[in-house]
Design a protein around this nucleic acid. Structure first.
Length: 267
DNA sequence: GCCATATGGAAAG
DNA sequence: TTTCCCTATGGCA
């Protein structure tokens, strides 16, 4: 269940394991079988991540993967085990294997369709893309910034955790319309996303708490959230804000749970 | 065993 | 705005 940092990690691991070598491709589950057959035995030439989207380049054909909420990669050394569960896509060579389960998207695209798909994705903080297109969208939008951050055509790779945390760190209410976000605030959000998500890619987990706040928080934290990182507000509804002590709130926004501190993020 | 939940997004209305 | 899809897991009985 990944945000963009995890996808970039998976891209790197797939690159390391398979790139520039012929790969056996199949679909034990069967749902990708016909497409798998078209690229079986080809050389994996490119592995690209843009936001949460992953593209595996086999010559003029690309496998486009989006994990969605449930998708998972298992990437390991050694011979692939007997398939267990629903494996949509499997890659293997003499040294290792990769299994893909439960993706929202697993499709085969030609060059043109791949370019079109990439074109629909916004700038990606992890790729240090030019944020201008994101600013152009935010500046003229009356949608709340909390929703814009989750829109992959505006900010690629940001998910529910980074959305909540970056707004808390910048003291911006998630309900503020995009057009009421100043250029300075937008820049602060973008720069913070670059730092947080780059760090998340390196560490393989999402930590957003500043160093100076950590000792106090570790001291009184009731128990670690199972997502594994240290955060300010994500999934902390009903608990006291780590900085001001007021209650962290939760509300559904666009069918996703939004967490924020009404005191630290007024408006 | 059953139910709720999950770091997502597209399609339908 | 609601519905639907994909899979696995943890908490509870």
């Amino acid at each position: 269940m990944p945000e963009g940092h995890a996808i970039h990690n998976q891209a790197r691991r797939l690159r390391t394991r398979f790139k520039s070598r012929p790969v056996r491709v199949d679909s034990p589950q069967g749902r990708f079988a016909a497409d798998a057959k078209r690229i079986d035995g080809r050389v994996l030439e490119k592995v690209e991540a843009q936001g949460k989207h992953l593209f595996l380049g086999f010559g003029d054909l690309w496998v486009h993967v989006h994990l969605g909420l449930f998708g998972k990669w298992r990437i390991a050394k050694g011979p692939a085990p007997e398939p267990r569960g629903q494996i949509r896509l499997r890659l293997q060579d003499d040294e290792g294997y990769a299994e893909l389960r439960g993706p929202t998207v697993c499709e085969l695209l030609d060059d043109e369709a791949k370019k079109a798909a990439v074109g629909r994705i916004g700038p990606d903080p992890i790729r240090k893309s030019d944020p201008t297109p994101a600013w152009n969208r935010v500046e003229r939008s009356k949608a709340p910034i909390g929703a814009l951050l989750m829109d992959q055509s505006v900010f690629a790779g940001v998910g529910n955790i980074y959305r909540a945390e970056v707004l808390f760190r910048q003291n911006i209410s998630p309900f503020r319309p995009g057009k009421q976000v100043s250029r300075n605030e937008f820049d602060a959000i973008w720069d913070d996303l670059v730092v947080l998500m780059t760090q998340g890619t390196k560490k393989g987990r999402i930590d957003t708490v500043r160093a100076e706040h950590l000792p106090e928080i570790m001291g009184r934290r009731p128990r670690q959230d199972r997502h594994g990182g240290e955060v300010y507000v994500y999934r902390r509804a009903g608990q006291p804000c780590h900085l001001c002590g007021d209650e962290v709130l939760m509300e559904e926004m666009g069918a996703r749970k939004l967490y924020w501190c009404p005191t630290c993020q007024p408006g």
